[in-house]
Amino acid sequence: MNLTAIRAIYLFEMARTWRTLLQSIVSPVISTSLYFVVFGAAIGSRISEIQGVSYGTFIVPGLVMLSVLTQSISNASFGIYFPKFVGTIYEILSAPVSYFEIVIGYVGAAATKSILLGLIILGTAGLFVPLHIHHPFWMLAFLVLTAVTFSLLGFIIGIWADNFEKLQAIPLLVVTPLTFLGGSFYSVNMLPSGWRTLTLFNPVVYLISGFRWSFYEIADVSLGVSVGLTLAFLAICLVTIWWIFKTGYRLRN
């Protein structure tokens, strides 16, 4: 294992975060705060409690997940797309590193960023509504699992994309709608049964449900199903990346 190389890639990527602090951390925090102001304070006060939790508090886990998901994808996809775009990928490909090490470096950095971001947003939320986390371990486990899984997905998108439009397309057209419809702002149980069944095909539902359970012990689906499906999604991403490097898809001609 070329640990020095992993460290080099990881630190290189993290350096990019600090350089673009405003874009990486500050802007997601501001947009999340705006959600709290609008949904938590302005509209939330007119919405009744959901399963014993005030609406403002109820949406906290969903909002954290919303940011972690989108930021994981955008960090990781940009991280690998950019060297491809400017050509510096030649150095990564010619270095004595295995694909596993490349993935740990890039995905590790992207996941670290979004975990930090998730925790910052959580702290920000604490300023608006009272927070109590019943299962801190599970909360962290879901945060890390989600950050890693969606950073892997972002990495795949970054390799697949051969222009900036494609890089934006998946997050914008697929991930954001899935997240909004995945129960960030409501309980899936509030939907009519037909829509509820349809919603259960949305993988984001399981992430948000599990994550919310770790806070308030209320869930749309059982914890086991949440963990199981998240792990399954992680496995799919890993297999896809294994295939990409095995075939050299869009990396090695």
Partner: peptide
């Protein structure tokens, strides 16, 4: 093919690390 915003020192040191 170079990074744009890195310093010369950082990019050269990165290459050394990348090669283990």
């Amino acid at each position: 093919h170079t990074d744009a915003f890195e310093t010369v020192w950082a990019t050269v040191s990165f290459s050394r690390g990348l090669f283990g």
